[in-house]
Amino acid sequence: MTTKSLTIAGAPRRRKFPWPTFGRAVGLTAVVVTFVAPLAWMLLASFKTNVDIYDSSKMFAFLPTLDNYGTVFGQANYGAYIWNSFFVAFVATVLSLVLAVPAAYSMSRFVMGRSAMVVLLARIIPGVSLLVPWYFVFSQMRLVGSFAVLILSMMFVSLPLILYIMMSYFDSMPEELEEAAQVDGLTPIGAFLRITLPLSMPGVATAGILSFIFAWNNFMFALVLSGASTKTLPVAIFDFVGYASIDWGGLMAAAVIVTLPIMVIALFTQKYIVSGLTAGATKG
């Protein structure tokens, strides 16, 4: 009765509360908080002294300090490790691209299913089962701890990944352009180099970025195969974990330094990363 009279009185009709929209907004907020809050906590702790980290009253209100970053770059010599990580990931990515992009083209155009399977096996096999024989061979050659071996092992992470992404990229590229170029007098390889390759640069970028990230993040191969002077960041982070105690502030600063470059790259190349991670997965 009352609602009816209100409507008649010319008041705006009461709209139903938009529960679906509201629920969705709550859900999305929860998603963002869940995924970002722990990272924010790590960042926050990296600006705290160890005394403040142990003080629960200073959870959010504390006097920020750069001491931890001082330790990381000074005592812990992180400048060198950042360079090692960058060098290894970069060289491994470039070499893998040179090897894998033509191979992916060949496997896509000539449908070499069985050969592709062998390479994709590399994604399935547990890394430890490769490390034992590698360690056997490389320690005989006294190469354990060298950049060469480290780069070789990272290429093993990068190459199958690049091959996988580029194969699904070439699969989706029409062949007509290459054929037209060959009619116009280019050799098949010329058509690949001058037509197909320039056109597939977005795919190459995707594969390259992901390969760099995976090589940068790789821990197990570096743990066994790196030496004191070739140590990469994921291994160096353990310098802050002692037998008796942990330097939490330094550890968090080190963790920030490992992850921050990758996250900055991810922010700027978001589209590429997403297309690379989902490559081939939706073909069924």
Binding site: V31, P234, I237, T259
Partner: peptide, 13 residues
């Protein structure tokens, strides 16, 4: 962006 961050973060970190 928020859901991409955990994905690319270094697992050891």
């Amino acid at each position: 962006v928020a859901i991409l961050l955990p994905l690319v973060a270094t697992p050891v970190a």
